[in-house]
Write a protein that binds this DNA or RNA. Structure first.
Length: 373
DNA sequence: GACGCGTGGGA
DNA sequence: TTCCCAAGCGT
């Protein structure tokens, strides 16, 4: 697979690391090699851009400065710290891993990639990153950058979305990695992948490793990396029930096994489900059906009204939600003993972890309130 | 091995 | 708007 000579490999290492030494980005998690710092940053950086992560990382370290603080934090505080970052299971897994570390390993970090990968939430990439950066182990850390950079340098045409392709890249990278500075090497590849060798608008003409880049030399950059197309998000229709009572608005917590697990949203009614169960429903009878369904689940009687604002759209990786707002203002405090959620006054909204779609729903509702004046 | 899991940015 | 992408992992 690798046809590079030993001198060429050595020259590549020197070129890359010299460039890195004078051009490395000054990032908050690069101030030291504390495994806790590396770990938190790597989890946050999964499928998330550096500029997005920086403020989250800084806040997180203020609130959870140690593994112990993280392990013992209440879940709502965890989710609040992660609010807006997405892929919320990451932070819940991180707390489980912190507890694993304290209970099973007496708080001592394992140094090997294999042992690191036993911690929940740490996969082959993150284990390689921690092992190489924090513990100086000569392990590849193959993320999207490494896939892009090495697929171009070596013209590797394996589909990077296939799980089996990872080992192919790891073997190639092991052969060009220096044993003395593996952490810097891996980070240099990432900096390269976010500067000269980006996915879009790349600038390979000025790349420090352009003469090692076979795809560039062959004019075949657009052919690498090879990846199969992802599926289109599935359309889903919902009604969001904005129910105002004398003591606040009704909220429900998402179940632990579903999208947006453990986050707080307005009560949602699955419109597709409703249509499937009662195909005779039309626009004038649907509100009554929703009122009935809500009453049967919560014993709360409501008189809902459509809100005359556009439907709120929100796209996730694999679902596209189309949400219609319905509003009810209950003058009398309802019996909440059969309601699974809770009532929250506006002043306390900031204590709840909201997903972005809930922020959009609230904004849309507020905008409508203003229009009434 | 395929799928579920968020969000924001850029073309 | 729509599409693709960005420091992936668990099941």
């Amino acid at each position: 697979m690798i046809k590079w000579s030993k001198p060429k490999i050595k020259e590549f290492q020197t070129t890359l690391l010299d460039w890195y030494d004078s051009n490395r980005r000054d990032l908050p998690w690069r101030r030291d090699h504390e495994p806790y710092h590396i770990w938190v940053s790597e989890i946050m950086l999964q499928q998330t851009q550096v500029n997005t992560v920086i403020p989250y990382y800084q806040r997180f370290m203020m609130v959870f400065p140690t593994v112990e603080k993280l392990a013992n934090a209440p879940e709502e505080q965890l989710l609040k710290a992660w609010e807006g970052l997405g892929y919320y299971s990451r932070v819940r897994n991180m707390q489980r891993a912190a507890q694993q570390l304290l209970n099973d390993d007496d708080g001592q970090w394992p140094h090997t990639k294999a042992e690191l990968q036993e911690l929940v939430g740490i996969g082959p990439y993150t284990a390689g990153a921690i092992a190489s950066i924090a513990f100086n182990q000569p392990e590849p850390a193959v993320d999207g950058n490494a896939f892009r950079v090495f697929s171009q340098l070596l013209e590797i045409d394996a589909d990077i979305t296939k799980p089996q392709t990872r080992s192919l890249f790891e073997e190639a990278i092991r052969k060009v990695m220096p044993t003395d500075r593996p952490g810097d090497f891996n980070q240099a590849i990432m900096d390269l992948g976010s500067s000269y060798m980006t996915a879009k608008n790349s600038d390979n003409e000025h790349s420090p490793v352009r003469k090692f880049n076979q795809a560039y030399l062959d004019g075949r950059l657009d052919e690498f990396p090879v990846r199969s197309k992802r599926l289109k998000p599935v359309d889903k229709q919902y009604f969001a029930l904005v129910i105002e009572t004398p003591s606040g608005f009704l909220f429900q917590q998402r179940a632990g096994n579903e999208l947006l697990a453990k986050l707080w949203v307005f009560p949602l009614v699955d419109a597709d489900q409703l249509k499937a169960d009662q195909p005779e429903l039309n626009t004038t009878t649907i509100i009554k059906a929703i009122e009935d369904q809500f009453a049967s689940e919560t014993e709360i009687q409501t008189e809902l009204q459509f809100i005359d604002i556009p439907i709120v759209n929100h796209t996730f990786t694999h679902q596209k939600w189309h949400v219609t707002l319905l509003y009810a203002n209950l003058q009398k405090q309802p019996d909440l003993s059969h309601f699974s959620g809770k009532v929250v006054p506006v002043e306390e909204f900031s204590t709840l972890a909201w997903p972005t779609v809930q922020k959009k729903l609230w904004q849309a509702f507020k905008k409508r309130q203003i229009q009434l004046f």
